[in-house]
Nucleic acid binder design. Structure first.
Length: 273
DNA sequence: CTTCGTTCCTGGAAGC
DNA sequence: TGCTTCCAGGAACGAA
């Protein structure tokens, strides 16, 4: 599932192949992916536009045509952006195709089809989940003071809290579990009951796991690939995620599984209090 | 206002 | 072996 490190890796691998190229043709193979405006309007506006840059914010990617005009893409669980020579046939699960002037096709593929695209032009439509994104891990806006301020106001389980994109932009289920494991915090613990030391450890943990994820080019379980079609390697470094029933890498205790906010959660009952 | 549960979707794993 | 059931999960949405 693409989270911040995976989306960042997609951005990096995509940029050299598509930035500066003009979109000659757009084909939408699955209408519901286009959330705004209509499919016809989307195609009409995007056609003949040149991609000037590709930015990432949280788990969103923005293909810019100008400062204020861009396609906002969310990969959700199984979305992928693949660049292939125009001579190659459609990849499996293709939902949108952009034919580029440079002889390459940019494909959006999506097995579970939860991924989305919005065309944003001059703020004529406000995507709240995008506008309200919290600060990014590793950014100067994401400070310990900020995290403490937010934590003390929340009664949610700490895991649910750090998954809230309005609090921190970019964490998903994998990195949330990992950050809590690094910080030795019990995932179901109510946010506002965290002690100062735990808040500090969580702050460090979030930055650490995101940094490691980016360094390892993302975490691949089933479906995630970057724009080159390559998998990440961070799955080999995980402390807890997907390791239910396996020994904790610190103490050897078998890791436990539970549901928090409907999300599968893995943790060490001995290390995480 | 916050918090919680449900929904969307498909492939693959688990269960019988 | 072959069928059925369950599970994975980001975020929108409605309900409490």
């Amino acid at each position: 599932m693409p989270e911040m490190p995976e989306v960042e890796q997609v951005r990096k691998t995509l940029a050299p192949k598509i930035v500066g190229s003009k979109i000659k043709k757009v084909e939408v193979l699955l209408d519901r992916i286009i959330k705004y405006p209509t499919v016809a309007e989307f195609i009409k506006v995007v056609k003949n536009k040149t991609i000037t840059s590709i930015e990432r914010r949280g788990k969103y990617l923005a293909l810019h045509f100008s400062k204020d005009q861009f396609i906002l893409i969310h990969l959700r669980m199984t979305g992928a952006l693949l660049v292939m020579p125009k001579t190659e046939t459609a990849p499996k699960y293709a939902t949108v195709k952009f034919e580029l002037e440079n002889g390459l096709n940019l494909w959006f593929t999506d097995i579970r089809t939860f991924g989305t695209m919005h065309l944003i032009t001059n703020k004529d439509v406000v995507i709240e989940s995008y506008e309200n994104l919290g600060p990014e891990p590793l950014s100067k806006e994401f400070t310990l003071e900020y995290l403490k301020e937010k934590i003390k106001k929340s009664k949610k389980p700490i895991k649910t809290f750090i998954l809230d994109q309005n609090v921190i932009a970019g964490l998903g289920n994998i990195y949330a579990d990992e950050a809590l494991a690094v910080a030795n915090i019990y995932p179901a613990k109510e946010a506002n009951t965290l002690k100062a030391k735990e808040q500090q450890a969580l702050y460090v943990g979030i930055n650490q796991v995101i940094k490691q994820g980016i360094k390892n080019k993302g975490t691949t379980f089933r479906d995630y690939k970057d724009a080159d079609g390559n998998k990440g390697s961070n799955q080999n470094k995980l402390l807890v995620y997907s390791r239910k029933g396996k020994p904790c890498k610190t103490c050897g205790t078998l890791l436990e599984g539970m549901k928090i906010g409907g999300r599968g959660t893995v943790y060490c009952k001995k290390c995480q209090k």
